[in-house]
Design a protein around this nucleic acid. Structure first.
Lengths: 408, 408
DNA sequence: AGTCTAATTTTAAGTCGCAAACTAAGGTCC
DNA sequence: GGACCTTAGTTTGCGACTTAAAATTAGACT
């Protein structure tokens, strides 16, 4: 309730966190470079990194010449300090992946999943996590946490509450369910899948180095992860970024959300195919959405109708992106999601042109539009990112470090 | 370039700032209450407030019983510590207002202004500021700073750069021009007028107490000030929040920005009147926009056409607001601007209903939609807010306190 | 006057980051 | 091969902070 802005020696924690994060993101660095990058004095860097090495979080990694003098000793985050697990709860299955601390994948499991109760999903998650850890021969005690990406909005609070209409979840406390289904007391982190995928692009993909980015994700659904000032923007109740249900054609096509003219009804896979179907005047050949969209794109060079549908799609999408540009004024737009990548691969110029036509000149000139680099399946890595982020943030083992800061 | 995260005794500045801000916003408080609110120990509060009192920033303000023991001494910000000036540069004139530190208005001047060169405006601002200070009998040396709200985007940097197409400004360095035209070296703060008005609503109006708010402003133009986590959101180059030029009807009415289907083309004053004109099939009676819109609203109970135009307007506006709700997930929407207030006074229910129809259920349930409380002319107070914010932020006199922190 | 209660101030630690002095580890040069 | 130079990283001494605990107000009550 109160601003709760205490400050004592959390200053030290701050600096530990800054240094550890710098090491994590900017590769092996010498103490000297750390000092320059962080603005901290060499003395403090030496002192703090000493602690980090003692704690096992950081290890030395060779040395490098410094023209003329004592060589610099490189430091880096210790990949073996611990492991993290990322879970991607999708509409048709779950993926569970195990990583070391630097997010190198060590093992992965996929499970098909017919629509089932939250409790069933939770127990599947718990056992799959156990399995993936065991299969990699990793001791359970080294797992620092489990991140879970879900296809719906996640209200963060004392315990995360998931609302995911597409899989029939309403007010599900996934954390509690998973905790109940598993013996180990690993810290759990639940987050919207689009946001975890966005964070993955920020850490390892097309978002690297930028502080204001919108990751636009187009698949069956349409969503966006908005990164402002380096962090994923959540809004008051963590449901920010619902770009897909933004009105782009007032009074237009009905959307599965119940409203008219949502962007998703035009550029979501279903919307694209439905428009194609209507333009052709006859049914499309069977197959799943993904291959049908691929077929549509393939057909474009031969079929006027297909080309027109794609062209219109690029127009709508450009207008939708322009709205993001005007409202958020990012420096970069990353287009992702399986449909987004497919469209982008063939239509990026058109999409950019449409964006330009709809955006204001000034903010438009700031942006670059790029394709995502991690492919359409980065939800699990992104989820695994969550426990790592927690570690970097506190710069201390996330398992059981109840300091007085927790009272907040 | 580097994260530049140093930390030494800026911790003290932090705490000074926290305490001063708390006193500013939460009225007179005792040291005891300050300690509770800030989380700082009583000792520190005593120590820091002692300094603040010595510096003249804070004064004692009576005392209040505490059941049984020593009475609590109330502290508050000293309104007489200094003065601030707010300038509203509009399309047709400028307003200059003088306030004490608690933003009580002491004097105000209006100047009509035909479109003129940036340099001419700057020199008018400089002389008007001088005049308003003199007319209130205030010593120029007590002026802590001058905030200037302008009708265009402001790129913040070493020196602010203003782009304001509606008054023909492109790349204007207003700060430098005003500084050159005035003898006094008051700190200048330039910001977009919508953002200053938004900040005014946050500090004193309908936004108080909330941390995630969108202030939707509708006048001749349409804009929004987005407040995230308590601060005005600027984006990468400070042009965020250009809600008016967001596409709401793909391929729709042409907008003065050159694009088609912008929200502003539907709910901006000109857009409303133009639609009304077309619906009637004949010209509207003369008069300025503001009175013509008022006439339209007056006519609604009698005229089917007028009623329909307003109804449609509420629909478009609701959809536009729903887009803000879906993307930003605020806890509150404040509707302001002269046209926004006029529409809101008569159509709020309809606007809310349209918002509900277009927004997702979950984020919609979080919000309340309210009318602005400061009237349509809060740009100047909002601008005056800027030097005060700077004062609260550093908790030290903003005139010439070049500490080493400035190197950042 | 004496006693109580609760708000502030003082006092006595314990932390922290930094500047300066110092040590380590190579390379150069005669 | 040893004196000397250069740059990296450590140690030391200091000033600045916050806090817990003890001491000191200030009224109210008896």
């Amino acid at each position: 309730m109160a601003p709760k802005r205490t400050t004592v020696r959390d200053l030290r924690r701050q600096n530990r966190s800054t240094l550890l994060s710098t090491l994590f993101f900017d590769g092996p660095l010498s103490r000297y470079e750390l000092s320059r990058l962080s603005g901290l004095s060499a003395a403090t860097v030496s002192n703090v990194t000493g602690e980090l090495v003692d704690d096992g979080l950081v290890v030395e990694a060779g040395s490098v010449d410094s023209d003329g003098g004592r060589p610099r000793v490189l430091l880096r985050v210790n990949p073996a300090f611990g492991h993290v697990v990322g879970v991607d709860v999708g509409e048709t299955g779950i993926k569970v992946e195990l990583f070391d601390l630097t997010l190198t994948q060590l093992a992965a499991f996929d499970h098909a999943l017919s629509p089932s109760s939250p409790a069933a999903v939770a127990s599947l998650i718990a056992s799959a996590v156990r399995d993936v850890v065991a299969s990699a021969g990793v001791s359970a005690s080294t797992v620092l946490g489990v991140g879970i990406g879900v296809p719906g909005t996640v209200e963060q609070g004392a315990t995360a509450v998931v609302h995911a209409p597409t899989i029939g979840w309403a007010g599900v406390r996934l954390e509690e369910l998973v905790a109940a289904a598993s013996e180990s007391a690993w810290p759990l982190y639940v987050e919207n899948g689009a946001k975890t995928q966005g964070q993955a692009e920020m850490w390892f993909g097309a978002g690297r180095g930028a502080r204001h980015v919108v990751i636009a994700l187009i698949g069956s659904g349409v969503g966006a992860a908005v990164v402002t000032d380096g962090g994923v923007y959540r809004g008051a109740t963590s449901s920010a970024g619902e770009w897909g249900h933004t009105t782009i054609v007032y009074g237009g096509r009905p959307c599965r959300c119940g409203a008219l003219g949502c962007l998703e009804a035009y550029v979501g896979a279903e919307g694209i195919l439905d428009r194609y179907r209507k333009a052709r005047g006859r049914e499309l050949p069977g197959g799943d959405e993904q291959s049908t969209v691929a077929a549509l794109i393939d057909a474009a060079p031969r079929s006027k109708t297909a080309a027109r549908v794609l062209e219109e799609t690029a127009g709508y999408l450009g207008a939708g992106i322009a709205n993001l540009v005007n409202l958020f004024n990012p420096e970069r737009i990353v287009l992702g999601g399986w449909a987004g990548l497919a469209l982008g691969a063939h239509q990026l110029d058109r999409i950019v042109a449409a964006t330009r036509a709809h955006a204001l000149r000034h903010p438009y000139e700031q942006i670059s539009i790029e394709l995502g680099r991690l492919g359409p399946d980065a939800v699990a890595v992104g989820a695994a990112t969550l426990p790592v982020a927690a570690l970097l943030d506190r710069a201390a083992d996330p398992r059981k470090p109840a300091t007085r800061a927790d009272i907040a």
